[in-house]
Amino acid sequence: MGVDIGGSHITAALVDLETKQILPKTWLRKHVDAHAEANAIIESWAELIINVFSHLKSGDKKIGIGIPGPLNYDTGVSFIKNQDKYDNLYGLNLKDLLSNKIEIPADHIRLMNDAASFLQGETFGGAGAHYDSAIGLTLGTGLGSSWYKKGVAHDADRWNHSFKDSIAEDYLSTRWFVQRYFQLSGKKVTDVKTLVSTAQSNPYIEQLFEEFGTNLAAFLNMFIAIENPEAVILGGNIAQSFFLFEDALRVGLQPQYRTIPILKAKLGEEAVLVGASSLWRENILT
């Protein structure tokens, strides 16, 4: 099973690791109160996981979970604090708590950072399946970053790296679009999807997305220099507007990087589920 735990939800599904696809009709998602007491949070997670496992007719129950940190992903201890989510899990062992509720061994649960799970899924069965190394960005309400080599993806944790006059996430997330659009037009929007829907008639859209593409290129120039990937994979809601910033992005890349494929993620919300479940592929963790 692949599980995606976010700041306000949990999603889970059974995944066929041979076909690299989610099994039909096993996908479940529900809201989670991230400010609840620890037992209530674990109960909520466990309830959905048990429901998904009801579709499993036979075989060992094994789980891969993509979840934001900070955590000790090997032991399962949470260090999430002061992030307006899951504070009550601080210092607790999530593997042990879940295993008790679900009634499976703790060593049948594996954890992975959610940004890394996204790239793991895309390289396992999505846009990056034919590459031996890659970097990934999830562009949305926040900035997720990851790198992939030798069959395993890792969190790059570059959201708060120094960038221009602030940090990278301030320029490569929804809030940049909201703030910059207000500066240009004097009008308020809440998301990028709204902006994209007005692309044909809005006089500010071309400049807005060109600036974003230039910012993203500057960030990628640094990221690529460090990781030397074969491909770059872009996911998250903002990546759906790739056609609006692709040209500016490619122009802004340093000449030696312009031949590196820049790919839009294929799996969408399934990426984290496929990536987390693929932790049980024998060739990944041997």
Rank of each mutant, 00 (worst) to 15 (best):
L94I: 10
L137Y: 11
G235D: 01
S44D: 08
A153W: 10
V152A: 02
V3Q: 11
L98S: 11
T123H: 10
G128F: 14
A36W: 05
L249H: 07
A239S: 15
E37I: 10
T75C: 00
V52C: 13
D107T: 11
I65S: 06
A116P: 11
V3C: 12
E169H: 12
A217S: 14
G64R: 06
N51R: 15
Q256K: 11
T123L: 05
E282D: 04
R258I: 06
I167K: 00
S8L: 03
A116M: 08
L279N: 04
E230Y: 05
G151C: 08
E169F: 07
Q254M: 15
I65E: 01
K85V: 04
P105W: 00
G140Y: 07
G76F: 07
I10Q: 09
E18Q: 13
N215G: 02
D247K: 12
S99L: 07
I65T: 04
T141Y: 02
Y148N: 11
L23G: 05
K150Q: 14
Y257K: 01
H35V: 00
K20R: 15
S201G: 00
H31V: 15
P261S: 09
A153M: 02
S145E: 01
L263D: 02
Q200F: 03
D114H: 12
S173W: 04
F124G: 03
S185F: 08
H154R: 02
I224S: 03
L89S: 06
G76P: 02
Q254G: 02
Y181K: 06
T190I: 12
V77Y: 09
L94D: 01
L97H: 09
F242M: 09
T198A: 02
T19H: 06
L14Q: 07
A106N: 06
G121V: 09
A265I: 00
N93T: 10
F177D: 05
A199R: 12
Q207C: 03
I233Y: 06
S241H: 01
V196L: 00
K25C: 00
L263V: 06
D191Q: 04
G128T: 11
L184M: 13
P261L: 10
Q120I: 01
I167N: 06
P68C: 07
N160F: 03
H9L: 01
S197Q: 14
T75V: 07
S117T: 04
L98W: 10
L17Q: 09
Q120C: 13
R110S: 12
S197R: 03
A239Q: 09
A231G: 00
Q179W: 08
D114E: 06
L111H: 10
Y148C: 10
D4C: 03
T194W: 02
S241F: 06
A12M: 09
Q200S: 12
L23F: 02
L139E: 01
K25T: 04
H35F: 08
P24R: 08
G268A: 05
A13P: 15
Y257L: 03
L195N: 04
Q83I: 10
E169C: 10
W176L: 00
L216M: 02
H108Y: 13
I226P: 00
